[in-house]
């Protein structure tokens, strides 16, 4: 059987909110090392990769590898019934066709069990090669969210450029143009407010803002976001999940024909 008890249940709620509009159905791959998920959006432009390590759970048991086929909208409906401070336990039998979500209130005076039907999903896993990215930028996740949202009101695509000075986001549309530059800034008091640029070579790529906007639904998971870019490769937008792993989004660039 599989069982995972997560003291900070809100993390799972946040993960679902971050991906439920991008991916419809996906397998949660459970093994003794944790829970992993990889799924493309329906247009096959973006890829989501989630890792929740066993060590981040208060209790974790997985006797044999299981692929739990889940409709994310339905799982989101179930998790919305958990309080933000609740402990969430996931349970599934090896041969079962359901998953149980148990919610425990912080002072243990309310215990809820929700059972959800699983589905059979043929999932195709893509191999993501280890890449030495030309540019890696870490910045406040709320700032990234703000920039992407602001640019979305002006254009459909953004050019993201990184030089040793910083990262720039540009767009254009019927009403005009916009360009935002965030400079490397390591002299701020709080580490989470820093913007750091690690660069081997300047890089500039074009992406659909609609997807970037969707990724920023993960902002609540982490105060910082890391953007990794290389010429003619998908951008990686990574939100680290404290003590547990990460939620990464890969987005294919738009490329000049």
């Amino acid at each position: 059987m599989f069982e995972g008890r997560l003291l900070q249940g809100s993390l799972l709620k946040k993960v679902l909110e971050a991906i439920k509009d991008l991916v419809t159905d996906t397998n949660f791959d459970c093994s003794e090392t944790g829970i992993a998920l990889q799924a493309m959006d329906s247009s096959h432009v973006a890829l989501v990769s989630l890792l929740l390590k066993d060590t981040g759970f208060d209790h974790f048991r997985c006797d044999r590898n299981l692929a739990l086929g889940i409709n994310l909208q339905n799982m989101s409906k179930m998790l919305k019934c958990a309080g933000n401070d609740d402990i969430i336990t996931l349970k599934a039998e090896d041969e079962g066709d359901t998953i149980t979500f148990m919610f425990e209130s912080p002072n243990q005076d309310k215990i809820s069990d929700f059972e959800m039907k699983l589905m059979d999903i043929d999932s195709e896993h893509l191999g993501i090669p280890d890449t030495d990215y030309q540019a890696i930028v870490t910045m406040p996740s709320a700032e990234f969210q703000r920039i992407v949202r602001d640019l979305s009101s002006i254009g459909d695509t953004a050019v993201i450029g990184v030089t040793k000075e910083g990262i720039s986001f540009s767009t254009g549309g019927d009403i005009g143009k916009a360009n935002i530059v965030c400079r490397q800034n390591t002299n701020v008091d709080k580490e989470e407010d820093q913007t750091t640029v690690e660069i081997h070579e300047p890089v500039s790529l074009t992406f659909a803002l609609r997807y970037l906007n969707s990724f920023t639904k993960a902002t609540a998971l982490s105060p910082q976001v890391t953007l990794s870019l290389s010429k003619e490769l998908p951008i990686v937008v990574e939100y680290k999940i404290e003590k547990m792993g990460f939620l990464r989004f890969y987005l294919a660039p738009k490329i000049e024909e």
Binding site: M40, S43, H44, V45, A46, L47, E124, H125, L126, G127, I128, P129, T157, T206, A208, L233, P234, Y250, L251, A252, P253, K254, I255, E256, E257
Partner: peptide, 14 residues
């Protein structure tokens, strides 16, 4: 013009 590439043109099936 620019065209949107698909993600599986970069990452091959495992």
């Amino acid at each position: 013009g620019v065209s949107q590439r698909s993600i599986n043109s970069f990452f091959a099936p495992k």
